[in-house]
Nucleic acid binder design. Structure first.
Lengths: 106, 106
DNA sequence: TATATTTGCAACCAGTTGGTTTCATAAGCA
DNA sequence: TGCTTATGAAACCAACTGGTTGCAAATATA
């Protein structure tokens, strides 16, 4: 099963869960109260987030507190960083690249 | 049809296409040569990338050059930035948050 | 003009996704 | 010891995804 962080953050509900957990650790029930879906659906999202290690569990009696593994988000940041350099320097130079190709063809 | 940038970058093939286009503008045929899929499959990916404005087309005769809209990647960067602050400062303080909750329950 | 090339689009298909309902398990509580 | 609560897992389902093949349109080339 393909389970990487990019797929995990692709879903808007999961991004919302991430936003909630960034504030504080929460139980599945507490999280579900913030959405218009069933608790079970949230549970499935939490499973996906856990599988790619974006979230970790901490059992406490019969409750399970989920918290965000912020470090994991760095993976996205690392991927982005290769392009960040480009958009900081190149910005509108892509048109130049295209022009160059056009000239080469002539 | 849901078509946002997070969904666009979720697919590994599309991320690879993005990486290629970051180097230079390319035609669908040229892009497809780098993958083990048909040109049509690449064409569908390009359609998705175009729809969420991560990529732009430039017709040139019967060829179409696709190039990367780097600025669009900033949207991911913006989303990340709210968490970047946290992982820079909080790092391992999530355990503290959890401890606090535990104490409150007692 | 006839032919080849480049491309997008439609139709189809198997696998995945996100949701639901139902159920089992384990922990707290009367 | 029952009853309630919190949770995960399984079965099912409609919609979406990523892939394919086949085709039509437009441009280049002989």
């Amino acid at each position: 099963m393909r389970r990487d962080i990019f797929q995990a953050i692709a879903d808007p509900t999961r991004r919302a869960i991430i936003a909630l957990l960034a504030l504080q650790a929460m139980t599945p029930n507490a999280i579900a109260e913030n959405f218009h879906t069933t608790r079970q659906a949230v549970s499935k999202h939490l499973r996906i987030l856990t599988e790619c290690e974006l979230v970790k569990q901490e059992q406490q009696g019969r409750e399970i507190y989920y918290s965000l593994e912020l470090q994991k988000l760095k993976e996205v940041d690392n991927w982005l960083s290769q392009y960040r350099k480009l958009w900081e320097t190149r910005f509108n130079q892509l048109d130049n690249v295209l022009s160059t190709i056009k000239k080469q063809k002539k």
